[in-house]
Design a protein around this nucleic acid. Structure first.
Length: 654
DNA sequence: GTAGGGTTAG
C-alpha cells in the first residue's frame, strides 16, 4: 500500500501540471570542489539569498534576487524558492504573474514549496486553485505539512465554506497524524466557529491531545460572540495560564454583551494577576466605561490609558474609543479635545466625532467636520454616512440629507444599506413627510429591517399619525414579534389620538404575548461620583420626602412660568388628576429633583435614562433649566438633550 | 502559520 504521508515526490512535476512553461535542468555539480565545501558554500549562499529576500519591498527587487539565484544554479532550490513565493504573497504580487512561473520550473517541489503556493492562493484566491494545488501535491505523492492544513482551514474560514472545511478535516485524519497537530487543531477550531459551527469547534477542542492558550481563547471568543458569557467564563476559569489576549477576550466579551460592570471587575482581576495592558485591552475597557456613562469611570479609564503608555494623543485606536466614550458620557467638549489633540486620525476618529456631534444635536458641527475630513485623504465609510445623515435628520435638514444620500454611492462607493435607509426614513419622517417616508420604505431596493419601520413608527408618534403607524407596526410585529417597544409606541400613538378601543386592542396583544413593559429608570451621578438610580413611581428612596418637596417646589415655579402638564404623555384611560400624578412620578423628574438637592449650584446636571424621554419631561426639563438656572444634560436610550435657558439642543426633534 | 480590537441608525 502506498504510504500516504510520504513527504517527497517521486513523480516529476511536469507530468502533473501540463501547463508547464519552461523546464530548467538543474545545473551540473562542479566536481572539482570537495563536496562538503560545496555544500557549505551553497548553504551560505542560500542564507544570503533569504536575507536579501527579506529586505525586498517590491517585485523588481525580488526579481533581482531571483536572477541572482538562477545565475548560481539554484533554480531547483526549494528552500530559497519557498521564501521567494512567501515574500511575493506578502507583497501582494498576483501568483499567476510570477510565482506560478517560478514554481513550474521546479522539477521536484518539496512540501514547503507546494504549501507556499497553496497559501498564496488561499490569501489571494481563488480558493479552488489552492485546492487544485493540494490535489496535485497529493497526486505527486508529496505529503502535506501542518502548515498546509492551517492555510486551507484559514481560507475556508474566510469564505465561510464549512463543507470544504469538513472535507479538509477528513483529509487531516486520512493523511495521518495531522488531526492531532496543535496548529492544525487551532485553525480548525477557528474555521468551524467562523462558519458558525461552534459545537464542531468545541468537539475538535475536546478531542485535541495538546491545547494551548490559543485554542482556549478561540473558543472563549466564540462563546462571547454568541452572547454565552456563562460558557465563556467557565472555559476561561479552567484555562491554566491566562495571557493578556485571553484576559482581553473576557473584558471585551463583557463589554460587547452589555455587562460593563463585569468588564471592569474582570479588568481589575487581570491587573491583580499582574498581566499587562495594551491598546486592545483598553478599547474593550473604554467601551465598557462608555456604557456606564459616568464621568468617574471616564476619567479613571483615561488615566489608565495614559499610564499604560497608550494615550489618545499617540494612539489612534485609544483616541477614537475615548472620543466615543466621552460623547456617550455627555462630555462632548472633552471628546472634541481628544480629537483635536490626536497626532494621527483615521476614519474611525472622524466618524466617532461626527457621531458624537450628531448625538448631541450639533448638526452643523457634524457636517462641517465631515467636509473637513473630505479635504484629507481619509474617505468616508458607511458609518461616517450614518453620522452625517443622523445629524441632518435631527436638525431637520432634509435637502442636505438627501443630497448626501445621493452622493454616497456615486462619489464614495458606499452602497446605501438598510441602516442608511433608516436614517432617510427618519429624516423625512421627523420633518413630517410621512407619506414620502412610507413611499421610500416601500420602494427601497433592499429589504427593510426593523430599524426602517421603527423609524417610520417613531415619526408617526411625533406627528400623530395612527394610520401609517399601524402599517409600520404590522411589519414590526412580523419582524420583531417580541420587541415590547413597538407595542408600547403604537399604543401611545392611539392614546394620543384618544382611540381607546385601539389602545386596548394593542394592550391585549401584548398580554397575549406575555410581554411586559420595561420599567423606566434614570440615574444621576452626585459630586462624589456615587450613582443614584430612580425607578418611575418609586417612593422608597431614603430621601424621598425631600425629593418630593423639591419636585413640588419646582413644579410650582414652572407653573408660574406657564408650564402645563402634557397629558398625552400619560397614555392611560384615567382621570386628569391621576394622569398628572403619573407624570410627576417619571424617573427623570425624580432624578432631576435629587440632583438639584445634591449637586453644586452652577454645575451641569447629567441624567441618564434607559428609555426615551417623554414629551412632558422634555418640556419640564426645558423650563427647569431656566427657572433653576442650570445646564441639564439628559441621555436617553437614543441621544443627548442639552437643556439650557429654557431650550433644548435637539430643537424639539427627537 | 493559529487567539483579543474602535465608530452603526428606530
Amino acid at each position: 500500500m502506498q504510504n500516504l504521508s510520504r513527504r517527497f515526490s517521486t513523480v516529476p512535476i511536469h507530468k502533473l501540471l501540463p501547463q508547464q512553461l519552461h523546464q530548467h535542468q538543474p545545473q551540473p555539480t562542479r566536481f572539482f570542489i570537495p563536496f562538503s565545501e560545496f555544500q557549505q558554500k551553497r548553504k551560505l549562499l542560500e542564507h544570503k539569498l533569504i536575507s536579501d529576500l527579506d529586505g525586498c519591498a517590491n517585485l523588481s527587487q525580488v526579481k533581482e534576487v531571483h536572477a541572482h539565484l538562477l545565475r548560481h544554479g539554484l533554480s531547483q532550490c526549494c528552500y530559497v524558492l519557498t521564501k521567494l513565493v512567501r515574500m511575493l504573497t506578502k507583497l501582494g504580487v498576483p501568483l499567476d504573474a510570477y510565482q506560478r512561473l517560478v514554481f513550474l520550473q521546479v522539477k521536484y517541489p518539496n512540501p514547503f514549496l507546494w504549501t507556499a503556493m497553496i497559501r498564496g492562493y488561499t490569501v489571494q484566491g481563488p480558493i479552488s486553485e489552492a485546492l487544485n494545488f493540494y490535489t496535485c501535491m497529493r497526486s505527486a505523492g508529496t505529503g502535506p505539512v501542518s502548515f498546509t492544513f492551517s492555510a486551507l482551514f484559514k481560507a475556508c474560514g474566510d469564505v465561510l465554506d464549512v463543507n470544504l472545511g469538513r472535507q479538509i478535516h477528513a483529509q487531516t485524519i486520512l493523511v495521518g497524524g495531522f488531526a492531532a497537530d496543535l496548529y492544525v487543531g487551532n485553525t480548525m477550531i477557528d474555521m468551524y466557529v467562523k462558519c458558525g459551527f461552534l459545537d464542531c469547534g468545541r468537539k475538535v477542542f475536546d478531542e485535541m491531545p495538546d491545547r494551548d492558550v490559543v485554542s482556549w481563547t478561540e473558543l472563549i471568543v466564540a462563546y462571547t460572540k454568541i452572547g454565552d458569557m456563562g460558557s465563556a467564563r467557565e472555559l476561561f476559569e479552567g484555562l491554566p495560564v491566562k495571557d493578556m489576549v485571553a484576559w482581553t477576550a473576557m473584558v471585551t466579551g463583557y463589554a460587547q454583551n452589555a455587562r460593563p460592570r463585569d468588564a471592569l471587575d474582570c479588568f481589575e482581576r487581570m491587573q491583580g494577576a499582574g498581566v499587562g495592558t495594551d491598546e486592545i485591552t483598553l478599547v474593550g475597557l473604554i467601551s465598557a466605561c462608555a456604557q456606564l456613562g459616568a464621568s468617574k469611570y471616564a476619567n479613571w479609564v483615561r488615566d489608565i490609558a495614559e499610564k499604560s503608555g497608550f494615550g489618545p494623543t499617540e494612539n489612534v485606536l485609544v483616541g477614537s474609543a475615548l472620543i466615543d466614550m466621552y460623547s456617550k458620557c455627555g462630555s462632548l467638549d472633552e471628546a472634541y479635545k481628544v480629537f483635536q489633540g490626536m497626532k494621527e486620525r483615521n476614519v474611525f476618529s472622524y466618524s466617532s466625532m461626527i457621531l458624537g456631534f450628531a448625538m448631541h444635536g450639533r448638526a452643523n458641527a457634524a457636517i462641517e467636520l465631515f467636509h473637513e475630513m473630505l479635504t484629507t485623504e481619509i474617505r468616508p465609510n458607511r458609518v461616517t454616512f450614518i453620522g452625517v445623515l443622523t445629524a441632518c435628520s435631527h436638525a431637520g435638514m432634509v435637502d442636505q440629507g438627501r443630497q448626501l444620500f445621493a452622493t454616497m454611492e456615486k462619489y464614495y462607493n458606499v452602497v446605501p444599506s438598510a441602516d442608511h435607509y433608516t436614517c432617510m426614513v427618519d429624516l423625512l419622517g421627523r420633518a413630517g413627510r410621512l407619506e414620502e417616508a412610507l413611499d421610500l420604505v416601500e420602494t427601497m431596493p433592499i429589504a427593510a429591517h426593523g430599524g426602517v419601520w421603527g423609524a417610520l413608527l417613531g415619526a408617526c408618534r411625533i406627528h400623530g399619525n395612527p394610520d401609517i403607524a399601524q402599517i409600520a407596526a404590522n411589519h414590526l410585529f412580523e419582524l420583531e414579534p417580541d420587541s415590547i417597544g413597538n407595542y408600547v409606541m403604537l399604543s401611545n400613538i392611539y392614546a394620543s389620538a384618544e382611540r381607546w378601543a385601539d389602545v386596548s386592542r394593542v394592550r391585549k396583544m401584548m398580554k397575549e404575548k406575555g410581554l411586559k413593559k420595561n420599567p423606566a429608570y434614570s440615574w444621576v451621578e452626585t459630586k462624589k461620583g456615587v450613582i443614584h438610580e430612580f425607578c418611575a413611581g418609586e417612593t422608597n428612596h431614603p430621601e424621598y420626602a425631600e425629593i418630593k418637596k423639591a419636585l413640588d417646589d419646582l413644579l410650582n415655579r414652572l407653573q408660574a412660568h406657564g408650564y402645563q402638564p402634557n397629558l398625552n404623555s400619560a397614555a392611560y384611560d384615567l382621570g386628569i388628576e391621576d394622569r398628572k400624578r403619573i407624570l410627576m412620578s417619571h424617573s427623570e423628574k425624580l432624578a432631576l429633583a435629587y440632583a438639584l438637592l445634591s449637586t453644586d449650584a452652577g454645575s451641569t446636571i447629567k441624567i441618564m435614562k434607559n428609555i426615551r424621554i417623554c414629551e412632558d419631561c422634555h418640556v419640564f426639563m426645558c423650563g427647569a433649566s431656566q427657572v433653576a438656572g442650570r445646564e441639564i444634560v439628559v441621555r436617553d436610550n437614543m441621544r443627548f438633550h442639552h437643556f439650557s435657558n429654557g431650550k433644548c439642543s435637539c430643537g424639539n426633534f427627537w
